[in-house]
Structures are given as C-alpha cells and as structure tokens.
C-alpha cells in the first residue's frame, strides 16, 4: 500500500501542497468568490420579494381604484336620477302653472264674452221694447185713429212683455 509504504518520504510534500492548494481554495474561492455569489442570490431574492410586494400593492391600489370608480359611478347615477326627478317635478310645476294661467285667461275671456252677450241681449230687449212701442202706437192709430203717447205705449209694452 503506497499510502503507508511511502509515508516517510512523502508526508511533508503531501501536507505542504494540500495546505497550499486548499489554502488557495479557501482564501480566493471560499472567502473571495462565495460571499459575492451568495450576495447575488440574496439580491435576487430581495428583488423578487420586493417585486412581489410592489405587485401586491399595485393589486390593492387597483382594487381601491375600482371601488373608487364604482362609488363615483353610483354617485353620478344617483345625481343624474335626482336631476331627472327634479326636472320632471319642475316640468310638472311649470305645466300646472301654465295650465292655471291659461285657465284664468280662458275664464276671463268667457266672462267677457258672457257680459257682452248680456249687454247685447239687454240692448236687444230695449230695441224690441222700442219697436214694440212704435208698433203699438201705429196699431192704436190705425185701429182707433187716436194717437197714443210714446210714454203710454212704452208702459203698455213693458206690461205686456212682463206678462209674456
């Protein structure tokens, strides 16, 4: 077994070169490179965690914005409904007022017309009285040859008209 047979002449060389090579590995690779590689991995993990955090925050913000939007939408709808109702009520009030004004106007016109009709009928009655009185006088003159005074004829006509 060379491991044992050669130990006397080789142990110093073995130990020296192993310490030299392993020392290089430990100081250059172990202490020099490994922490940097670990740092890269750590930085990547941190970046991924940070990105996930940002994404989560963005999700929450999106939800917030949507809720906000929904609320705005609902508010706008409610406002629009209120305005429509208001407009409807206003329109109804306007119509009512206009109808009322028109009604008054119409009633006024009717009253005026009725008064006119009354006046016309009164003047017509007076005319009839006058004509009837003239006719009565003529009739009296023709029948009796007497001339009745206009006053008497009018009295007679009035009396006759009252009796119908």
């Amino acid at each position: 077994m060379p491991q044992i047979a050669q130990i006397a002449e080789t142990y110093a060389s073995q130990i020296f070169w192993l310490l030299l090579t392993f020392g290089f590995v430990f100081f250059v690779i172990g202490l020099g490179m490994v922490p940097k590689i670990e740092a890269t991995v750590g930085a990547r993990d941190a970046k991924i965690a940070g990105d996930l955090e940002t994404a989560k925050a963005a999700f929450a913000r999106a939800d917030e914005i949507e809720a906000d939007y929904r609320k705005h939408d609902a508010d706008a709808r409610a406002a629009a409904q209120a305005r429509i109702a208001e407009a409807k009520a206003q329109a109804a009030r306007d119509t009512e007022a206009k109808v009322k004004a028109t009604d008054a106007l119409v009633a006024e016109k009717i009253a005026a017309a009725e008064a006119e009709i009354r006046a016309a009928s009164t003047s017509a009655m007076a005319e009839i009285e006058h004509v009837a009185a003239d006719a009565a006088r003529d009739m009296v003159a023709k029948i009796s040859g007497l001339s009745a005074s206009p006053e008497a004829a009018r009295q007679a006509v009035k009396a006759a008209l009252v009796h119908g």
């Binding site: 060389s13 070169w17 690779i29 590689i37």
Partner: peptide, 28 residues
C-alpha cells in the same frame, strides 16, 4: 522535502477546475 509530485499536480488541477467553475458564477 516538498517535491512537486503527481499528487500535488492533481491538487493543482482540482484548484484550477474549481476556479474555472467558480468564474462562471461570478457573472452576477
């Protein structure tokens, strides 16, 4: 005596291979 032996040669080869391997990890 610390003669450079075939054993030492393979120790050095191990270091060189390991070092080359690690270089690839240093792109970071």
């Amino acid at each position: 005596n610390i003669a450079f032996t075939n054993s030492a040669l393979w120790m050095v080869a191990t270091v060189v291979v390991l070092w080359i391997f690690m270089i690839g990890g240093m792109k970071r």
